[in-house]
Design a protein around this nucleic acid. Structure first.
Lengths: 220, 220
DNA sequence: TTATTTTCGTTAGATGCTGTAACTAGCATG
DNA sequence: CATGCTAGTTACAGCATCTAACGAAAATAA
């Protein structure tokens, strides 16, 4: 990574940008992304409002950058989980849950309610496919499982011909694609319900539920 | 329902409230709940900003009411799906998906990213348990399925003693509780990914995927 | 019918936000 | 040293929520 030209000006600039993001994460953790205020951040940093526009062209650009960092963080967490060849899907599941619980609002920035007009820039979709790729690696190692029954068979047939999201894994059989997809979707269901607080008051142990679902899919 | 006193004043009042909500739903559908503006609604209705505060104490109160209506709408949709005794879970799944696709932002108002500080009022949690109750009805009719394997057994043991969310169904065995819970969670995973657009660009037919998952759980 | 009270809408304004424009002080480079 | 770039400033436009004070209309009471 030969990134920064290391001129003092640029160093300072990156430092300020980093601090802005730091405080932005703080605000988001406290009151959600919709409550993020550039003015408030500027006040915290002892400068006046418009100064921050030297560093971020708009509030949206800052949020987009935070979303990018969130994706990057998840992709790295996935990549760093277990060995490159033999990662068990259950390990990825636990890593994902830890990552989500570590900062729920960061999770929601990636998988939460989207803004209707918003379209993620190209590089973010690239990171997203990195994440899917790691998931496919793990399920490739785990194997296709037993023969699909019922509608799963129909889905496998479909996936055999519609797999642009798995271009990095041309050797993966449709059953592996289906299992990875199913896995991802189920994890997301549990986590977003848990993080949104839909289990509170139900007296349900999310960890136990999570473990049961992971086990159900992993063992089959 | 002997609700309204039907005095002309009250009739007018309810009418204005209804129109405000109508336009609010329009705004939300276009730009999401965070972009909802009382001022803009007032402008559309040909009155000046503060007038609306005669009808809604604050922006938050309006949003809370919309959330309540969304919950109510889902509970009614569930209740009206199939017969009171013999509803198949798959029918509920399809009803839920139709309801979600019919107005994605309404879905997100119920199951999307929560505002950190927000606590839903009592009556909303009541409607939420109505929804769970309908789900439990359907799974009671479907039966407990085959014996649980692996971690599902541990979850069943836990659920036998932790079931305050199923007080309306004292006769439901733990396996039914688990299946209803799992069902709910998996549906939510697929729907929120679909509605948030995480399947677009993957060339994945959400309906086929949805059917496969519903089938996988229903048939077991 | 007349008088009183309640309700609905208005305008003015406090406060906070995003974002632009114009200007100044300081730093780096020629 | 002179020039230009950059990071900050203040001023301001525009829009948002929401409060306060006031006038008009409608419902109610005498």
């Amino acid at each position: 990574m030969t990134g920064s030209p290391a001129t003092p000006r640029e160093r300072y600039r990156q430092q300020v940008r980093a601090e802005v993001k730091e405080r932005a994460w703080g605000q988001i953790a406290e009151a959600g992304a919709s409550a993020l205020s550039l003015n408030a951040i500027a006040r915290q940093m002892g400068m006046s409002g418009p100064a921050l526009y030297r560093y971020f062209a708009s509030r949206d650009e800052l949020i987009t950058e935070l979303i990018r960092d969130a994706y990057r963080s998840l992709a790295d967490t996935f990549r760093d989980t277990g060995s490159p060849e033999g990662t068990h899907p259950a390990a990825l599941a636990q890593a994902l849950r830890r990552w989500a619980l570590d900062d729920p609002q960061r999770y929601f920035l990636v998988y939460g309610t989207p803004v209707p007009g918003y379209h993620a820039p190209q590089d973010i979709t690239g990171i997203a496919s990195e994440i899917m790729s790691t998931l496919l690696d793990a399920w490739m190692a785990a194997g296709p499982g037993e023969a699909p029954a019922g509608a799963a068979g129909a889905l496998d047939e479909y996936l055999a011909d519609h797999r642009p999201w798995a271009t990095g894994h041309p050797a993966a059989p449709p059953a592996v694609l289906r299992r990875a997809l199913t896995f991802w979707s189920r994890l997301h269901g549990m986590l977003s319900l848990e993080l949104a607080g839909h289990f509170t008051g139900m007296e349900l142990d999310p960890e136990l539920f999570f473990a049961a679902e992971v086990d159900a899919l992993s063992a089959r």
